[in-house]
Design a protein around this nucleic acid. Sequence first.
DNA 1: CCTACCGATCGGTAGG
DNA 2: CCTACCGATCGGTAGG
Lengths: 208, 208
Amino acid sequence: MPTSDVRSKILEEATRLFAARGFEGTSIQAIAEAVGVRKPSLLYHFKSKEELRQAVLDELLTRWNEVLPELLMAAAEVDRFDGVLDAMADFFLEDPDRARLLVRETLDRPEDVRQRLERYVRPWVDVALSQLSKAQREGHVHAKADLPAYVVHLVQLVVGSIAVMDTLVALLPEDAGDRRQRLRAEMRRMARSGLFAPRPKNYEVAAE
Amino acid sequence: MPTSDVRSKILEEATRLFAARGFEGTSIQAIAEAVGVRKPSLLYHFKSKEELRQAVLDELLTRWNEVLPELLMAAAEVDRFDGVLDAMADFFLEDPDRARLLVRETLDRPEDVRQRLERYVRPWVDVALSQLSKAQREGHVHAKADLPAYVVHLVQLVVGSIAVMDTLVALLPEDAGDRRQRLRAEMRRMARSGLFAPRPKNYEVAAE
DNA sequence: CCTACCGATCGGTAGG
DNA sequence: CCTACCGATCGGTAGG
């Protein structure tokens, strides 16, 4: 085991608590209790609360960078767009705390997050953009779409919706079956209809 | 003057600071300083920090409820949809702290916000939905659209995007003119294309 | 990884 | 609207 068991448990509980209560709303005492150690033991692994914050965010964005680029780089397929969109949604739905943490951090430290997005997210956004531009020139994508702005909104739509999903589902009619599933399906539909020119059956992004 | 000058100044500074640093990240001492009074004076106007939080949120949602319903109820016009969407965007762009506060509060107190949305937002969402349903039956709106889910996502798109707009614009190419304006225009385009069936020129919601 | 302890700041009150 | 003050908790350190 490369990193100690306690260290990764601290990261796990810190992620959970920062997401639920925010950084300022979470004491290192509370994290230590959740882990099952004393406060000074936590501070042996992370020299300060600020260092723990950075480590939590680092881990989140590192995992993001493990999952998404390879999907984006994969051989062109008919449903590439759906694949990337679903993978992004899956990543955050798998643990909605990731979305909440990212939104909180963006509100708490806009400049810090901006620099991280520049480093972690922009590269694969640029790849997606070059493919989408090609599809736009070929007429598969709405000519009027402002692609960089579209992608930014799409990411915000996915991350933001998942971050507050538990509150949003409550606004849907109660009788509806799986309200989360409905929100997700409609998110996908909105993403597609905002992108693809009206050729219902032929929507691939980069079919060679 | 119905409410004292100091009281409204406290609400104003509290809104600003809660939005920027969060509730837990803002001390009542800091708010008192921003207002120019001592801490116990602030606590004369609001018996506790919690009471101040509720008052700040009340004011925000009350203003929302002053602006939006009348717009929604106004006589049917060709560009009703754009009108409502723009009014909503204007409301939050006029003071982006409103969006940030709402997002933070949703993360901090999901159940509390859910109940308030039920009271403040749901009524006019229901009005919008009945009009959109009619438009959908008449074929102006995508048949596949899940309208309740669509509206929920649309509100989240507007509020969420504005809440983190300063960070998002930094992801757009630097050369672009007014990047905020670009984001806003694309938001509008996404909202429309997700809703209206492909009849480019005829997009009104409820034209009698 | 622990006990013991630090100064600073927190939300809030007494009393005028 | 103020001065003066409260106990509790904060992040962090000494020392082992």
